[in-house]
Protein backbone atom coordinates (compact mmCIF):
# COMPACT_ATOMS: atom_id res chain seq x y z
CA UNK A 1 0.00 0.00 0.00
CA UNK A 2 2.63 2.42 1.08
CA UNK A 3 4.74 1.69 -1.97
CA UNK A 4 1.80 2.25 -4.21
CA UNK A 5 1.15 5.54 -2.52
CA UNK A 6 4.73 6.54 -2.91
CA UNK A 7 4.73 5.59 -6.55
CA UNK A 8 1.62 7.65 -7.06
CA UNK A 9 3.17 10.54 -5.24
CA UNK A 10 6.25 10.29 -7.39
CA UNK A 11 4.22 10.18 -10.55
CA UNK A 12 2.33 13.22 -9.39
CA UNK A 13 5.51 15.08 -8.70
CA UNK A 14 6.98 14.04 -12.01
CA UNK A 15 3.89 15.31 -13.78
CA UNK A 16 4.05 18.55 -11.85
CA UNK A 17 7.70 18.92 -12.76
CA UNK A 18 6.90 18.40 -16.42
CA UNK A 19 4.31 21.13 -16.30
CA UNK A 20 6.76 23.63 -14.89
CA UNK A 21 7.19 26.79 -16.87
CA UNK A 22 10.89 27.05 -17.66
CA UNK A 23 12.68 30.40 -17.38
CA UNK A 24 14.59 32.03 -20.18
CA UNK A 25 18.30 31.36 -20.26
CA UNK A 26 20.33 34.54 -20.45
CA UNK A 27 23.78 34.48 -21.95
CA UNK A 28 26.64 36.93 -21.43
CA UNK A 29 24.53 39.10 -19.15
CA UNK A 30 22.14 40.07 -21.92
CA UNK A 31 18.46 39.84 -21.11
CA UNK A 32 16.75 41.32 -24.12
CA UNK A 33 18.08 41.89 -27.57
CA UNK A 34 16.10 43.90 -30.13
CA UNK A 35 17.33 43.60 -33.69
CA UNK A 36 16.13 45.62 -36.71
CA UNK A 37 12.68 45.88 -35.28
CA UNK A 38 9.90 47.65 -37.15
CA UNK A 39 6.44 47.98 -35.70
CA UNK A 40 3.32 48.96 -37.60
CA UNK A 41 -0.12 50.00 -36.46
CA UNK A 42 -1.98 49.26 -39.66
CA UNK A 43 -0.09 51.39 -42.19
CA UNK A 44 1.52 53.65 -39.62
CA UNK A 45 5.10 52.75 -38.83
CA UNK A 46 5.44 53.40 -35.12
CA UNK A 47 8.95 52.03 -34.64
CA UNK A 48 11.74 52.16 -37.19
CA UNK A 49 14.72 49.83 -37.23
CA UNK A 50 15.24 49.71 -33.50
CA UNK A 51 18.39 48.00 -32.28
CA UNK A 52 19.12 47.73 -28.61
CA UNK A 53 20.37 45.40 -25.90
CA UNK A 54 19.14 45.37 -22.35
CA UNK A 55 21.57 43.94 -19.81
CA UNK A 56 20.58 41.43 -17.17
CA UNK A 57 19.87 42.65 -13.63
CA UNK A 58 20.16 46.28 -14.60
CA UNK A 59 17.63 49.03 -15.01
CA UNK A 60 17.21 50.24 -18.54
CA UNK A 61 15.29 53.48 -18.93
CA UNK A 62 13.59 54.59 -22.13
CA UNK A 63 12.97 58.28 -22.44
CA UNK A 64 11.59 60.54 -25.12
CA UNK A 65 8.65 62.80 -25.87
CA UNK A 66 5.07 61.50 -26.01
CA UNK A 67 4.28 59.40 -29.04
CA UNK A 68 7.88 58.50 -29.73
CA UNK A 69 7.16 54.80 -29.47
CA UNK A 70 8.84 53.95 -26.20
CA UNK A 71 5.70 52.51 -24.59
CA UNK A 72 5.01 50.65 -27.80
CA UNK A 73 8.43 49.08 -27.67
CA UNK A 74 7.94 48.19 -24.02
CA UNK A 75 4.65 46.49 -24.73
CA UNK A 76 6.12 44.49 -27.55
CA UNK A 77 8.68 43.00 -25.17
CA UNK A 78 6.04 40.74 -23.64
CA UNK A 79 3.72 40.89 -26.62
CA UNK A 80 0.99 42.86 -24.89
CA UNK A 81 0.86 44.59 -28.26
CA UNK A 82 -0.91 41.53 -29.57
CA UNK A 83 -4.04 43.00 -27.99
CA UNK A 84 -3.89 46.01 -30.28
CA UNK A 85 -5.68 45.39 -33.52
CA UNK A 86 -3.62 45.82 -36.66
CA UNK A 87 -0.32 45.78 -34.82
CA UNK A 88 2.48 44.02 -36.70
CA UNK A 89 6.11 43.47 -35.76
CA UNK A 90 8.98 42.86 -38.12
CA UNK A 91 12.52 42.06 -37.11
CA UNK A 92 13.53 40.19 -34.03
CA UNK A 93 13.25 40.47 -30.29
CA UNK A 94 15.14 37.80 -28.43
CA UNK A 95 14.96 37.14 -24.76
CA UNK A 96 17.78 34.90 -23.71
CA UNK A 97 18.20 32.91 -26.88
CA UNK A 98 14.58 32.77 -28.02
CA UNK A 99 12.89 34.98 -30.55
CA UNK A 100 9.64 35.85 -28.85
CA UNK A 101 7.93 36.62 -32.13
CA UNK A 102 8.28 33.02 -33.29
CA UNK A 103 4.93 31.46 -33.98
CA UNK A 104 5.62 28.79 -31.42
CA UNK A 105 6.13 31.25 -28.57
CA UNK A 106 4.28 30.32 -25.44
CA UNK A 107 2.64 33.59 -24.40
CA UNK A 108 1.83 32.38 -20.93
CA UNK A 109 5.47 31.48 -20.31
CA UNK A 110 6.66 34.72 -21.87
CA UNK A 111 4.42 36.90 -19.77
CA UNK A 112 5.10 34.94 -16.62
CA UNK A 113 8.80 35.58 -17.07
CA UNK A 114 8.42 39.10 -18.41
CA UNK A 115 6.08 40.86 -16.00
CA UNK A 116 4.52 44.25 -16.53
CA UNK A 117 3.45 47.22 -14.44
CA UNK A 118 1.12 49.65 -16.12
CA UNK A 119 0.87 53.40 -16.18
CA UNK A 120 -2.25 53.42 -14.04
CA UNK A 121 -2.49 50.96 -11.20
CA UNK A 122 -4.89 48.19 -12.15
CA UNK A 123 -5.58 46.07 -9.11
CA UNK A 124 -8.32 43.50 -9.64
CA UNK A 125 -11.55 43.95 -7.73
CA UNK A 126 -10.48 41.39 -5.16
CA UNK A 127 -8.75 41.39 -1.82
CA UNK A 128 -5.06 42.28 -1.55
CA UNK A 129 -4.31 38.63 -0.94
CA UNK A 130 -6.26 37.36 -3.94
CA UNK A 131 -4.68 39.97 -6.17
CA UNK A 132 -1.23 38.67 -5.43
CA UNK A 133 -2.26 35.03 -5.39
CA UNK A 134 -3.90 35.40 -8.79
CA UNK A 135 -0.71 34.88 -10.77
CA UNK A 136 0.56 31.88 -8.81
CA UNK A 137 -2.90 30.34 -8.96
CA UNK A 138 -2.83 30.80 -12.72
CA UNK A 139 0.25 28.64 -12.76
CA UNK A 140 -1.28 25.89 -10.73
CA UNK A 141 -0.25 26.74 -7.18
CA UNK A 142 -3.28 25.90 -5.07
CA UNK A 143 -1.82 25.06 -1.69
CA UNK A 144 -2.76 27.63 0.95
CA UNK A 145 0.60 27.44 2.70
CA UNK A 146 2.49 27.98 -0.53
CA UNK A 147 0.27 30.90 -1.49
CA UNK A 148 0.61 32.45 1.96
CA UNK A 149 4.35 32.26 1.60
CA UNK A 150 4.33 33.75 -1.89
CA UNK A 151 2.04 36.59 -0.85
CA UNK A 152 4.26 37.44 2.05
CA UNK A 153 7.42 37.22 -0.01
CA UNK A 154 5.98 39.32 -2.82
CA UNK A 155 4.70 41.99 -0.49
CA UNK A 156 8.04 42.07 1.28
CA UNK A 157 9.67 42.26 -2.12
CA UNK A 158 7.56 45.30 -2.88
CA UNK A 159 8.34 46.73 0.56
CA UNK A 160 4.75 46.91 1.65
CA UNK A 161 4.39 43.89 3.90
CA UNK A 162 4.41 46.01 7.02
CA UNK A 163 1.66 48.35 5.83
CA UNK A 164 -0.52 45.65 4.34
CA UNK A 165 -0.08 42.56 6.46
CA UNK A 166 -3.13 43.42 8.53
CA UNK A 167 -5.31 44.25 5.54
CA UNK A 168 -4.72 41.25 3.33
CA UNK A 169 -8.42 40.48 3.21
CA UNK A 170 -9.48 44.02 2.36
CA UNK A 171 -10.39 45.09 -1.12
CA UNK A 172 -7.40 46.23 -3.12
CA UNK A 173 -9.54 49.03 -4.52
CA UNK A 174 -9.55 50.72 -1.12
CA UNK A 175 -5.80 51.31 -1.17
CA UNK A 176 -4.28 54.65 -2.11
CA UNK A 177 -2.96 55.16 -5.64
CA UNK A 178 0.64 54.67 -4.61
CA UNK A 179 -0.19 51.57 -2.61
CA UNK A 180 -2.20 50.19 -5.51
CA UNK A 181 0.74 50.62 -7.84
CA UNK A 182 3.14 48.93 -5.47
CA UNK A 183 0.56 46.19 -5.04
CA UNK A 184 0.61 45.74 -8.79
CA UNK A 185 4.37 45.43 -8.61
CA UNK A 186 4.02 42.86 -5.87
CA UNK A 187 1.46 41.05 -7.97
CA UNK A 188 3.89 40.96 -10.87
CA UNK A 189 6.67 39.72 -8.55
CA UNK A 190 4.52 36.88 -7.29
CA UNK A 191 5.08 34.84 -10.45
CA UNK A 192 8.84 35.33 -10.12
CA UNK A 193 9.50 37.16 -13.35
CA UNK A 194 13.01 37.50 -14.73
CA UNK A 195 12.23 40.81 -16.33
CA UNK A 196 9.87 43.53 -15.16
CA UNK A 197 8.54 46.04 -17.66
CA UNK A 198 7.32 49.31 -16.18
CA UNK A 199 5.29 51.68 -18.28
CA UNK A 200 5.53 55.10 -16.63
CA UNK A 201 4.74 53.48 -13.31
CA UNK A 202 4.87 56.71 -11.34
CA UNK A 203 3.16 59.13 -13.68
CA UNK A 204 -0.12 58.89 -11.77
CA UNK A 205 1.47 59.12 -8.34
CA UNK A 206 2.51 61.76 -5.84
CA UNK A 207 6.24 62.45 -5.16
CA UNK A 208 6.39 60.37 -1.98
CA UNK A 209 4.90 57.29 -3.63
CA UNK A 210 7.18 57.90 -6.58
CA UNK A 211 10.19 57.90 -4.29
CA UNK A 212 9.09 54.65 -2.75
CA UNK A 213 8.75 52.98 -6.12
CA UNK A 214 12.14 54.23 -7.23
CA UNK A 215 13.71 52.82 -4.09
CA UNK A 216 11.95 49.60 -4.79
CA UNK A 217 13.36 49.43 -8.30
CA UNK A 218 16.87 49.82 -6.91
CA UNK A 219 16.29 46.89 -4.60
CA UNK A 220 14.65 44.74 -7.23
CA UNK A 221 17.48 44.98 -9.68
CA UNK A 222 19.52 42.72 -7.43
CA UNK A 223 17.21 39.97 -8.57
CA UNK A 224 15.61 40.95 -11.85
CA UNK A 225 16.03 42.96 -14.97
CA UNK A 226 13.95 46.12 -15.17
CA UNK A 227 12.96 48.07 -18.23
CA UNK A 228 11.23 51.32 -17.42
CA UNK A 229 9.57 53.91 -19.60
CA UNK A 230 9.48 57.32 -18.04
CA UNK A 231 8.67 60.90 -18.89
CA UNK A 232 10.63 62.08 -15.96
CA UNK A 233 14.25 62.58 -16.89
CA UNK A 234 15.42 63.02 -13.32
CA UNK A 235 13.88 59.66 -12.61
CA UNK A 236 15.78 58.05 -15.45
CA UNK A 237 18.97 59.69 -14.28
CA UNK A 238 18.38 58.66 -10.68
CA UNK A 239 17.61 55.01 -11.05
CA UNK A 240 18.70 53.62 -14.38
CA UNK A 241 21.96 52.05 -15.46
CA UNK A 242 21.31 52.38 -19.16
CA UNK A 243 19.24 54.99 -20.94
CA UNK A 244 17.81 54.92 -24.42
CA UNK A 245 16.43 58.04 -26.05
CA UNK A 246 13.62 57.74 -28.57
CA UNK A 247 12.28 60.26 -31.02
CA UNK A 248 9.53 59.79 -33.61
CA UNK A 249 9.78 56.01 -33.60
CA UNK A 250 13.54 55.88 -33.80
CA UNK A 251 16.05 55.05 -31.15
CA UNK A 252 18.44 57.94 -31.31
CA UNK A 253 20.96 57.03 -28.71
CA UNK A 254 21.59 54.48 -26.03
CA UNK A 255 24.33 54.10 -23.47
CA UNK A 256 25.26 54.23 -19.81
CA UNK A 257 22.96 56.63 -18.07
CA UNK A 258 25.74 58.81 -16.71
CA UNK A 259 27.25 59.13 -20.13
CA UNK A 260 23.97 59.86 -21.90
CA UNK A 261 23.08 62.60 -19.46
CA UNK A 262 26.53 64.13 -19.15
CA UNK A 263 27.82 63.80 -22.69
CA UNK A 264 25.10 62.99 -25.18
CA UNK A 265 26.47 62.10 -28.58
CA UNK A 266 23.49 63.16 -30.60
CA UNK A 267 22.34 66.76 -30.86
CA UNK A 268 18.70 65.74 -30.54
CA UNK A 269 19.36 63.91 -27.29
CA UNK A 270 21.09 66.93 -25.91
CA UNK A 271 18.21 69.17 -26.93
CA UNK A 272 15.72 66.91 -25.26
CA UNK A 273 17.71 66.48 -22.08
CA UNK A 274 18.36 70.13 -21.71
CA UNK A 275 14.68 70.78 -22.18
CA UNK A 276 14.75 72.48 -25.52
CA UNK A 277 11.79 70.42 -26.70
CA UNK A 278 9.47 67.62 -25.61
Amino acid sequence: MREEKQAKQQKKEARAAKKQVPPFRFENGVAINVRDMDLFYGDFKALKKVNMTMPEKKITAMIGPSGCGKSTLLKSLNRMNDLVEGCRVEGEITIGDENIYEKATDLARLRKNVGMVFQRPNPFAMSVYDNIAYGPRTFGIKKKSALDEIVERSLKGAAMWEELKDRLGKSALGLSGGQQQRLCIARALAVEPQILLMDEPTSALDPISTGKIEELCEELKEQITIVIVTHNMQQAARISDKTAFFLLGEMIEMGDTDRVFSAPQDKRTEDYITGRFG
Binding site: V21, M80, L83, A108, R109, G115, A125, Y134, T138, R187
Partner: peptide, 18 residues
Protein backbone atom coordinates in the same frame (compact mmCIF):
# COMPACT_ATOMS: atom_id res chain seq x y z
CA UNK B 1 -14.98 45.93 -16.79
CA UNK B 2 -11.90 48.09 -17.37
CA UNK B 3 -9.46 46.90 -20.00
CA UNK B 4 -6.63 47.43 -17.57
CA UNK B 5 -8.00 44.48 -15.59
CA UNK B 6 -7.73 42.22 -18.61
CA UNK B 7 -4.26 43.55 -19.41
CA UNK B 8 -3.19 43.02 -15.84
CA UNK B 9 -4.22 39.41 -15.93
CA UNK B 10 -2.78 38.69 -19.37
CA UNK B 11 0.48 40.35 -18.38
CA UNK B 12 0.79 37.85 -15.57
CA UNK B 13 0.72 35.08 -18.15
CA UNK B 14 -2.89 34.04 -17.57
CA UNK B 15 -4.67 32.65 -20.62
CA UNK B 16 -7.59 34.46 -22.18
CA UNK B 17 -10.09 31.92 -20.93
CA UNK B 18 -8.73 32.17 -17.42
Amino acid sequence: VADSMREGSLALGASKVR
